[in-house]
């Protein structure tokens, strides 16, 4: 199980803004372990999906070039204060994490 996502969901007028921080090593697979000189295998988040009222409002496909502990922000229309946003990710090793937040 991946580490918990930190999420903030806020209504800015009509626009629903979501900011999320996903603790993850995002290992690109090019680095070598200084102690063993072995290549550190790639381990990174590949998919992030956000749902509002059963509707996918945002999808991110990532490669290993996204920074460690990825931060993402996105916005959409048609939400209201009190609505829930669901966010989940999965990585290239089959790990995943999910969270939800209520729009303020």
């Amino acid at each position: 199980m991946g580490k918990p996502i930190k999420i903030r969901a806020k209504m800015k007028g009509d626009i629903a803004e979501v900011k999320a921080l996903m603790p993850h090593e995002m290992e690109a697979g090019f680095r070598r372990d200084p102690a063993t000189n072995e290549r550190v295998p790639a381990h990174y988040i590949t998919d992030v999906v956000a749902e509002h009222n059963g509707d996918v409002v945002f999808t991110a496909y990532w490669g290993p070039a996204v920074s460690k502990n990825p931060f993402v922000s996105f916005s959409f229309l048609g939400a209201a204060v009190g609505d829930t946003i669901n966010l989940h990710w999965k990585d290239n090793k089959g790990d995943s994490s999910a969270t939800e937040a209520v729009f303020k």
């Binding site: 626009i15 945002f58 991110a60 496909y61 290993p64 996105f74 916005s75």
Partner: peptide
């Protein structure tokens, strides 16, 4: 990164890259 947006999306995305 590649972001797939839907009809309700606002085209404004932030991310951090290497």
């Amino acid at each position: 990164a590649s972001f797939a947006l839907g009809p309700r999306s606002v085209a404004n995305v932030s991310v951090r890259i290497k």
